[in-house]
Amino acid sequence: MYTMPANGGAGISSGRRLGKGLSGSRRATGTMMENREACLAWINDIFGLDLEGAPQEARVGAGSAALGAQPVSFLGRGKKKKTGGDDAGGTDIDDTGSKGGKPPKDVTLKLTSETEAKQPSPRNRTKLGVGERVTLKLKPLSGDWVVAGGGSVNPAKGSKVVFTAPGAPGTCTVTVTAAGKTEQITFTVIGPSTVSMERRKIRHDAVGYPNAGFVARIFVGPDDVNFCKIGITEDDCPCVCTGYWADFNGIGHGANPDAVGLEQKVEKGMGTRMVGQDNIWSGYIDTRKLDDWTGTQTFNIPWNYSCDGNSARFTTVVHQVTTDAKGTSRATKGGASSGDCKLK
């Protein structure tokens, strides 16, 4: 038995804002190196590069940015130089040992993206599920980030930020500006559209009346994005029954108002796996024996998703039991089946 947390185990909002509680004087991110000349000297020491003398031809065009008087975050994650014996642990930046000279004029910006969810690959995909989170990194500078088309990026300044896709489908473009240059990345955000099931266990009871069922894992697709940030609800719907099952006609498949979440696991050809298992079971009617058991029971169940305040019906899942004259029954749902369950 799992222990219930105090708030009922609320999930993770996809639209949370980073930076809560930051004091106004605290920089959101970025390089704290103040002495540009010291940094140039440091680069020269570490990499053997004399940037102050870099030829104009070497400066790339697209994606490059004039460094100008920007903070020296272009140093990025430079290799640490061991000093030996000094346990201060700081980087070997000699902020008093400037070699002087001119700063580099250009720097190439590199914008990369990686989804937080490890599945599906590749993690630099630009097609996302609603609410998905993506780590964006800009090298070698820190920049100012804005997003158009929905979603959010937090923090708004920095070299490493998190883009959160909106709760509704759309196209979002994230733009980062650094040293007067911009880089962009455009994401296509989609909602769920399919439900697939994978049978785990057949259920067939020897009660002398037709019945069939199975337990299944549930997947929400398509499988080329991750839907771990959505919740799923089912609406109420009445059973439509014929023949042997007619006594169940109109019986409601009760609404499931509590949204059930999804895991981060994505299975190829299926989609993102839902938390929990579906329990598909025909029940049975034991009021009469028949020579011909033929009949059907059908639920057309509306499925809805919710994400970051947005909700929408995205599909109707058909749950059906068919029984033939001999009483052999088969339950099907989401592409999975109990197989033939003979009367016993």
Binding site: P5, R16, L18, M32, M33, R77, G90, D95, G158, K160
Partner: peptide
Amino acid sequence: NRNLGDLQEAGDLAARYDGELLTDPVEA
């Protein structure tokens, strides 16, 4: 409140200065 959004946010905040360089070794 065991709201996982708060834990997620703590992780985001803890990583937000990654990559920064400080000139002062003591501060770093």
